[in-house]
Amino acid sequence: MSRRLMLPLALAVVMQAGAAHADAIDGDWCSADGQRMSIRGDNITIPSGRQIAGNYSRHAFDYVIPPGDSGAGDTVNIILRSEYLAFSRQGANGDKPTEWRRCKDLNS
């Protein structure tokens, strides 16, 4: 391979590797109806405001709704669809999914 092609190829590889870190489910998420959640590794702040542990993978997260919250005992599955979009489903029947978008400003 010529030296002229090596530099652009190396830059492309480095840039792609950096972009891969941006597509994780970690972060702050907002729904159209005003709900918020925040995922940090195995920990999540659920829409009720409670902080609990769940099952994390880079593009998905699930947790069991704790006692005292609406839907207690149901499992919520969250799937990352793009860098800025995720969908969640609650319960065994997987009711209508909730759309989540990355929050622009948590103080608004």
Rank of each mutant, 00 (worst) to 15 (best):
Y63T: 03
S88Y: 10
N43V: 15
A19T: 06
A24D: 11
A24L: 01
A72H: 03
D42Q: 12
A32R: 09
S82R: 06
R40Q: 14
W29M: 09
P67F: 09
W29G: 15
E83W: 12
A72M: 01
I65N: 10
I65S: 01
I39L: 06
I39N: 05
D33M: 11
A60S: 14
I79K: 14
S57H: 07
S48Q: 10
D28L: 09
G18S: 15
Q16S: 14
I46W: 12
E83A: 13
L80E: 01
Q35V: 00
D23C: 01
P66V: 00
A20R: 02
R89N: 14
F87N: 10
Y84W: 07
Y84E: 11
S48A: 11
S57Y: 03
Y63G: 06
H59I: 05
R40A: 08
I79F: 10
G41A: 07
S70Y: 07
T75R: 13
I52V: 13
G71A: 04
V64Y: 10
G71P: 05
I78F: 05
E83H: 08
A20H: 13
I52K: 04
I25R: 02
D74E: 09
T75P: 07
Q51G: 14
A86R: 09
G34Q: 04
A53S: 15
D69N: 15
I46R: 01
S38W: 08
S48P: 04
N55R: 07
Q35M: 13
I79L: 10
S70T: 11
G41C: 04
I65M: 02
M15W: 08
D62G: 08
Y63P: 00
R58G: 04
I65R: 06
G68Q: 02
A53T: 07
N77K: 09
R40F: 09
Q35I: 03
A32S: 06
M37P: 05
D69M: 08
F87S: 12
L80D: 12
A24N: 02
G41T: 06
S48E: 10
A22P: 08
F87T: 05
G34C: 03
A22T: 09
R81C: 13
R89Q: 12
Q51S: 11
R50V: 06
P47M: 03
I25G: 08
G49M: 03
A72W: 01
A20F: 06
R40T: 11
S70W: 12
D33R: 02
R50G: 07
G71M: 03
Q16F: 13
Q16G: 10
Q35E: 11
C30Q: 08
H59V: 02
I79R: 02
M37H: 07
D23S: 12
Q16T: 14
I39F: 03
A24Y: 05
A32K: 12
M37F: 04
G27Q: 11
A24G: 12
E83M: 08
Y84D: 13
S70L: 00
T45Y: 13
I78G: 03
H59T: 10
T45Q: 10
I65C: 08
R36K: 09
N43I: 07
R89C: 01
F61H: 06
N55M: 07
N77Q: 15
A17L: 07
C30L: 02
A72P: 06
P67Y: 13
S70E: 12
G54Y: 03
I65E: 02
R36F: 08
S57A: 15
G54N: 00
Y84A: 15
S88I: 00
A20G: 09
A86W: 01
D26H: 13
D26K: 03
A60G: 10
S82T: 05
D33L: 03
G73L: 04
